[in-house]
Design a protein around this nucleic acid. Structure first.
Lengths: 205, 205
DNA sequence: ACAAAAGTGTTCCTGTTACACCCATGT
DNA sequence: ACATGGGTGTAACAGGAACACTTTTGT
């Protein structure tokens, strides 16, 4: 994975997020810190290139991936950077290279300027889309508990939520299917598992 | 203005909208119909290129301009198309070339496929951002009447609105300044002129 | 027994909708 | 005088926020 060959005109960059305990993004360690990015090949779509960058860095396919913004490249760098963000549950990710790690996006850590902007902007987009797009579910397995879901909302939205209001609201705006089994894990009542049946049509792309 | 030199790798394209009576976009007539677009020059930003395309087609500067999406170019066309949308009151526009005209975006008129997608998507974005970003004001002069503003909302949102509710809502969500003069035009009571003081902070870019 | 998360309803408040009449002007 | 758009308030309704206790389990 090499970013920014000086000759590469178009580069796709991806901020990959996951939730373990807090929101984290995939950071390539080096002198400065970067996010996965690759020059777009001759007969490759932008999205395919972004997925390739993701595959090479984290060994993951079939993630939720969405375009974020296109930036002008700096002098001596690529001509433009087409930025994407990706979301995945952390247990589907398999880091396959040294020098790749998870970092907290909010104190804006040591990452080259152009990539820091991408990470920050992706965080904002995430919080903004939380209510009307099926963002939160991308961090969870196919079946999940309402407790897990609430935690995701709280982490991305950065605020604690009332359990009863959350459940009412979520069941009103998404089509959740109550499965018939539950997850038992810990000294407390087992939690029912749900699946998301259908995303309500979002307003814009 | 030449679009799609086969060798041009990166092209900026702009869907320029205005409101006369309905929502219209700037269309370059030709065999097929296009929107303004230009290859990005060596040391030019994407946005600057978009503005240049706008200037050459409609003789307008200092418009509201926002990035929309970046598309893969087709085979034989540009490598990528960075799409923008622009908004302006129609009296600030000065068409300076033959073969440039206004067209209705909603019946999806005769425009090359890649550009049609841009126009459609821009319309959706417009409707989506209407409530939380100062979109509507970009179609009006500095000072405007609430009637004019309501008309803009109705056109972009594609639905009639109640006058009293509209006024209450708009005054609650935007900081409108009531100027001390009015506009008299027609056989009816003159309408008070307002200005927009400050945009409320929107949630995302 | 107890600690720990799951699960469940009601009240209040706020913001949205529906709705009808008088005002100021030009012709 | 009349036609035209400008301007205003109130009552019903719906969606969001605040709030506390019982249930089921593992140790």
């Amino acid at each position: 994975m090499n970013d920014t060959k000086p000759s590469a005109p178009i580069v796709a960059a991806v901020a990959l997020f996951t939730i373990r305990d807090k929101l984290e993004f995939l950071r390539l360690e080096g002198e400065q810190g970067r996010i996965p990015s690759l020059p777009v090949e001759e007969d490759e779509t932008l999205e395919a290139c972004a997925r390739r960058a993701l595959w090479e860095a984290a060994g993951i396919e079939e993630v939720f991936l969405e375009q974020l913004y296109t930036f002008d490249g700096g002098p001596g760098g690529p001509r433009v950077i087409v930025a994407y963000y990706a979301l995945a549950p952390h247990d589907r990710l398999h880091i396959r290279r040294a020098g790749v790690s998870w970092a907290d996006p909010t104190p804006a850590p040591i990452v080259v300027e152009e990539h820091r902007v991408i990470v920050e902007r992706a965080c904002e987009r995430l919080a903004g889309k939380l209510e009307y797009a099926p963002i939160a579910y991308q961090f969870l397995a196919d079946r999940f508990t309402l407790g897990e879901l609430q935690t995701v909302y709280e982490i991305i939205g950065r605020q604690a939520l009332d359990k009863r209001n959350f459940r009412r609201r979520i069941r009103a705006s998404w089509d959740l299917v109550e499965t018939h089994d539950a997850r038992r894990e810990g000294p407390h009542r087992p939690a029912r598992l749900y699946r998301l049946r259908d995303a309500r049509p979002p307003l814009e792309g």
